[in-house]
Structures are given as structure tokens and as C-alpha cells.
Design a protein around this nucleic acid. Structure first.
Length: 407
DNA sequence: CGAGATTCATGTGAAGTATACCTTTAGGCTTAA
DNA sequence: AAGCCTAAAGGTATACTTCACATGAATCTCGTA
């Protein structure tokens, strides 16, 4: 019985007309054949990296630009091309792309190097090995044969903010010890100010070349969206005004093209699920909500228990403050936190640690925390939730479940 | 009244600890000759 | 004797704790006008 129903569902699903012709081009990882409005940057990247094809070490490159300005895409595009040319002509170039932000993958020196070494087929355990040892393994694997390694470190600012700049120093220093191979670093950073906090020596070695990606404006984003949607969606599916609206949304947020594309893709999926024949403006609004919801839920559920507990405490305070316009301080959070911990069977951590966790939650965009001085009444962080109000209850329930509070 | 000292509550840095995990090594046991 | 397994020893990264000092503006203090 149920089986039949399900069968029907799949039958329907198959026979249903999809809005999409080829969804691939709307995916984040998709690299289009040509990239609009980034010719200059791509040319520069290509020129800087080209010496690799002659087995000369390219200059280290540092790229700045806000999110969604095409940094990653342009680098990917260029390196893909280099890769294929290299392959055709049997030039030993390896290109490794690593996103340093990924928690528990590449957010410490050890994990980063381990990740690179794994790319070379080395088996590296998650912990227990001396970092030197991991370096050595990587080193040996790299120097085994003559080759150029182009190492792309995306969101490198996050890594350095967390673990210091020694990593880059070590990586650049390795070059002088390699006999067969050379490494070129390509650092990508969202934070324009980031270079100010690092050791000048490290900075100069990393940014032998620098490139800045300006944000797209609304018109450029429209261009990009049109190109992508032409391929991705069937003709006439997209309602008039949808693309300009999407672009406007994105332009509002410093010209974030990735966001615009995401928005359109999710809107398409929603429209499809609703059996709508066209993609209309209200789908965009729904998509925006869904994206935000998914992001928040994803972050919240993947955090370690102590982070969840901290966040839950903040929620609790916020809840009891309903209406009153009082701000939340670190001390308040710790009190509630300590109170709540036994109920969830968690061993309370110290306030010192909690302070760090709050800072990290801030980095994750779950809360806004600002260090303020209240004069005579000391110094503290002023905490505000950065989660849209319509998600508050949902997220709180979710956290409650994760932590083992019933319901 | 105003400059400087005081104060509070927590930020923040450094160093230490607990835990979980890794490799190496030495001993003990089994096996095959 | 060689081979294999196991447990202990010695080492590391990470998350957290402990200790100690730094911060910075509201408030207090006290000399001066």
C-alpha cells in the first residue's frame, strides 16, 4: 500500500516538468567557461602563475576581496587551466586547494599540513604525531620528484587569526630546503585589514604579488545571473523582475555574487517543489529565508556541546528578558550556563573558556559581541543574538534537543 | 569645577593539566624448521 | 630462530584550567578658583 503510494510519487516526480534544464551551473562548485567582469584579475593571476609551466617558482600571491567577489572562482578557473595545460604537456604541476575555515579539517597548523600531506597520499592520523613529523612526511612526498606545487589557501585570514602566522613562515621557508620542488602560495582573504595584524616579514614573503577584487555592482551581478540562468533554467521559466531583485538583494550585501546565485537556485528548487510553473518574485523571499534558516541550523547543530550550551544559555536569557531592553553580559551568561550545565549532564567550564567561546560564536555570526567598558562597573562583552527573530524558537528547540533537554 | 586616582567586572595572555591518540620498543608467545 | 602480538613507554595536539595582569570609562577625591 505505502509502497504503491511511494511509487506513484516517484512516477509523478519523473513525469513532472522540471524548471531546471541543467542545475549544475547554479552549484557553488561550478566553474563556468568564462567569467564575467573579472578578465583583468584573471589575466593577472595567470601571468603571475604562468612561470610554473616552465618549472620556475611563481611569486607568492595574495588576494583580497569580500565574499562572493569571485576570488575563489577566478583562482580555480586559472589553476584549472594551468592544470590542463600542464597535463597535456606533461609538466609536473600539482595544485592543492584548501579552505582553511573548515572546522576540524584545516583550522590549525597541524591539521592544515596533514591535509596537504594527505593530498600526496600520505596517511596522517588526526592527532598524536608531532607537527614536525607531519611536515617531514609532506616534505618527503613533495620532494620525491621534480614538481611545482601551487598551494591555494582560501580564507587564510581565519587560520592566521586563530593560530598565528608561523605556518606561512614555515611554508615559505620550506622552499629553500627543497631540492627538486618548489611551493607557491596563493592566499585568499576576505578581510582587507587582515594584513595589518601579521608579522611584516611574513607579510612580505606571502604577498610578493597582491591583487584586490572589487565588489560587483548590481548590473554586473545581473549579467552573471543571466548567463547562469540561461543554462540552468528552461526558457521562460523565470518571471520578469526576478533577476533584478535577486541582484539587488546581493548588491545590498557588498555585491556578493555567490549569494545571488544561491538565492536563485534555492528559489528554483522551492518553486519546483510547489509545482509552480514559473519562478516568481515571492520565491526569492522564501529562498532568502530558507538559506538563512539552513545556515543557522547547520552551524548550530555542528558545534561542540559546550558551544551549544553557551548559545542555549544566551537564548534563555534573551527569552526571560522578553520585551525589556536590557543587554546581555558575559557574567549573566556564565551564571545561567552554570545553572543549566548539570541539567544537561555537562561539566561546566570556566568563565575564561566561556569568554573564548563567546568570541568564537561571534566569529561564526551567531551572536554579536562587543567589548565595552561600563566605567565604574567594569568591563564586559555586550552580547546580542544575530539570529533572525522568526528562527529563535526553532533554533532554541533544536538546541534543547541536542543538549538532551526534553522538547 | 576639573584633573587625576580609584574601581569594578571581565578581557586577555601565558603556562600548566587532562585526555585521547600515535609510534616505538621490548618482551612474551607461537610457529616452523 | 623467526615471526607475530601485546603492553608499556615516551611523545603530541587539543580543549580546557589556573594564574596573573591589563583595560578603560564611570565615579570618587581633593586641591583650587
Amino acid at each position: 500500500m505505502a509502497k504503491k503510494k511511494l511509487n506513484n510519487f516517484f512516477e509523478n516526480f519523473l513525469s513532472k516538468d522540471s524548471l531546471f534544464a541543467d542545475k549544475k551551473s547554479m552549484q557553488v562548485s561550478f566553474v563556468p567557461d568564462e567569467i564575467d567582469h573579472r578578465d583583468e584579475q584573471i589575466n593577472q593571476i595567470a601571468q603571475i602563475l604562468a612561470p610554473a609551466l616552465k618549472l620556475e617558482k611563481p611569486s607568492n600571491l595574495f588576494i583580497y576581496g569580500k565574499t562572493g567577489t569571485g576570488k575563489t572562482l577566478s583562482v580555480r578557473y586559472t589553476t584549472d587551466n594551468i592544470h590542463s595545460v600542464a597535463k597535456e604537456n606533461n609538466i609536473p604541476i600539482k595544485i592543492v586547494y584548501i579552505n582553511c575555515k573548515l572546522k576540524r579539517v584545516a583550522d590549525t597548523e597541524y591539521r592544515l599540513i596533514a591535509e596537504i600531506a594527505r593530498f600526496f597520499g600520505e596517511e596522517i592520523p588526526a592527532t598524536g604525531l608531532p607537527t614536525d613529523e607531519v611536515y617531514k612526511k609532506f616534505f618527503a612526498a613533495l620532494d620525491k620528484e621534480e614538481q611545482i606545487l601551487i598551494l591555494v589557501l582560501d580564507e587564510i585570514d581565519q587560520l592566521i587569526a586563530k593560530t598565528g602566522d608561523e605556518i606561512i613562515y614555515n611554508l615559505t621557508r620550506i622552499n629553500s630546503e627543497l631540492t627538486n620542488s618548489q611551493i607557491s602560495l596563493v592566499g585568499i582573504s576576505n578581510d582587507l585589514m587582515f594584513a595589518n595584524h601579521i608579522d611584516p616579514r611574513v607579510k612580505s614573503s606571502l604577498s610578493e604579488e597582491e591583487l584586490i577584487f572589487p565588489p560587483y555592482n548590481a548590473l554586473q551581478i545581473q549579467d552573471i545571473l543571466r548567463k547562469r540562468t540561461d543554462v540552468a533554467f528552461k526558457k521562460g521559466v523565470i518571471h520578469e523582475g526576478v533577476i533584478p531583485k535577486c541582484a539587488a538583494y546581493a548588491a545590498r550585501e557588498h555585491g556578493d555574487a555567490r549569494r545571488a546565485i544561491d538565492l536563485l537556485r534555492v528559489a528554483g528548487e522551492l518553486a519546483e517543489r510547489q509545482n509552480s510553473a514559473t519562478l516568481e518574485i515571492h520565491h526569492i523571499d522564501e529562498a532568502e529565508e530558507k538559506i538563512e534558516r539552513d545556515r543557522v541550523i547547520d552551524v548550530v547543530t555542528t558545534q561542540p556541546k559546550q558551544f551549544q550550551m553557551t548559545l542555549y544559555s544566551i537564548f534563555t536569557i534573551k527569552h526571560s528578558l522578553e520585551g525589556k531592553k536590557k543587554t546581555i553580559f558575559t557574567g549573566d551568561v556564565y551564571d545561567v550556563y552554570k545553572h543549566l550545565c548539570p541539567q544537561a549532564g555537562l561539566r561546566p567550564i570556566t568563565q575564561r573558556r566561556l569568554s573564548d567561546i563567546i568570541a568564537e560564536l561571534d566569529m561564526l555570526g551567531m551572536i554579536n559581541a562587543k567589548v565595552i567598558s561600563k566605567g565604574r562597573f567594569g568591563r564586559t562583552r555586550e552580547i546580542q543574538l544575530a539570529i533572525p527573530s522568526h528562527l529563535l524558537d526553532k533554533v532554541k528547540n533544536l538546541l534543547g534537543k541536542e543538549l538532551g533537554f526534553e522538547k
